[in-house]
Design a protein around this nucleic acid. Structure first.
Lengths: 231, 231
DNA sequence: GTCAAGACTTACGAATTCTTGACGCCTCTG
DNA sequence: CAGAGGCGTCAAGAATTCGTAAGTCTTGAC
């Protein structure tokens, strides 16, 4: 199963919070609780929940105001849970920045389904940033596409070769020790097989370096490990 | 005011369409209409509406299926409008890819507020028409119509073949691991059946590649997975 | 029941990748 | 200077993964 989803419920009524706590599988959802609007805003800022469940009838401020305040600085999905079923209440809350509105009483199944919708939405906009592409000289690696080029021509790497190169790229410029490389690529049980590294670094140099005997990018740090130079 | 928002309502009941047409300000919303699921999908592909309003009780196919079909190739917000108020109906529709669910009868104000929410989610500019057609060389796939051509002639694919191909197209260029493919196409329980992939990739190559033994598009990444090359 | 389409299974040769050992070079150190 | 150890190269065979063909099983239409 994936990681645990952190939810925040902002509601002063203990029975509702109890109900949610009892209904949501703790292996799937972590439930934070706030009893009023100010506390809800504070906890949102501090704990960065994946979704906020917001009641409208709060003791210190109106729920619509809470939604508006949150929207000033966060895009966290807000699902309003309210006993008020009047249309104008819904419109006000949705226009204030809420993403969904459920009228009490509601079924847990529907709530969870709507939470899934909210998570789908927040996940989608997150993968907008373009592919992380590493470039240095004639070497070009697209980690999202799992593709490697040298001087414009595509190079095929075996799984281990690629894993090794990707690891070096993620720590470009830094020295990675033999142990680190072996543990990450082959697994903790192989941390003494330094010979593997010599073989595979050789293969990578052969495929990627202009003059494999005098590596420009994949350099050796004698007695320590290897490093991917960035220039 | 900004430009006119194009909506598509998929509903076979004329009174509902009339009601929407009468309620929505034509200076603000342009309302397209479809009387059944197939027509709805076609119009979505052709006219790229900003939001789809979907009834569940359609004459030709279930609304949940329409949502699922749309989600195979487009991210357009889907708001379900249904007389079915059962919780399970809502869960099914939302999990099939719908973004919101209103039970009839509903107020126009609430509907419009939820449309505004949907527009907020889909991003300010709705001007990136999702291309439901994938093309590369002699290969052409219309994800909206579920049709495939090679060099102009239509190719018939079995359900699994199509699912596999559509998945590769949605991540065109990227490597999809065996596990990802098996989980998405066959389900999480099948993630070790890598042989299925070999068989079905073979069938796809046989149907789609000019020389199946030297695939140009459906390429293997040994030890990792498969990739659909775009050029 | 018959039939056909599609899904799944089995079998096996081919291709790719990984592992391993041999060998030579170099540097450091006693 | 000799020996030890780290490093790079090469290549053989072991192990794994792939592709293909052909078969069996399931399902649904007629």
């Amino acid at each position: 199963m994936a990681e645990i989803i952190r939810l925040l419920v902002i509601d002063d009524e203990l029975p509702i919070r109890r109900f949610l706590r009892a209904s949501l599988d703790p292996k799937e959802y972590e439930l934070l609780e706030a009893e009023n609007g100010a506390e809800g805003i504070r906890i949102t800022a501090k704990s960065n929940p994946a979704v906020v469940l917001l009641d409208l009838g709060l003791p210190d401020m109106d729920g619509v105001e809470v939604a508006r305040s949150l929207r000033e600085w966060t895009q966290v999905p807000i699902i309003v849970l309210s006993a008020r079923g009047q249309e104008q209440d819904k419109i006000d809350a949705l226009d204030a920045g809420a993403d969904d509105y459920l009228t009490k009483p509601f079924g847990v199944g529907e709530l969870v389904a709507r939470i899934r919708v909210a998570l789908r939405h927040s996940g989608r906009s997150a993968d907008d940033p373009p592919d992380p592409v590493f470039e240095a000289g004639g070497l070009r690696v697209d980690l999202a596409l799992r593709q490697v080029w040298r001087d414009g021509t595509e190079i095929h790497l075996t799984p281990i070769e690629y894993k090794l190169l990707a690891l070096l790229i993620r720590h470009a410029g830094k020295v990675l020790t033999h142990k680190q490389l072996l543990t990450e690529v082959w697994g903790p049980a192989y941390e003494i097989e330094t010979h593997y590294l010599r073989v595979y670094m050789g293969q990578l140099r052969h495929k990627l370096e202009a003059t494999p005997a005098e590596p420009r990018y994949l350099t050796t740090e004698p007695g320590v490990g290897y490093r991917l130079r960035t220039e």
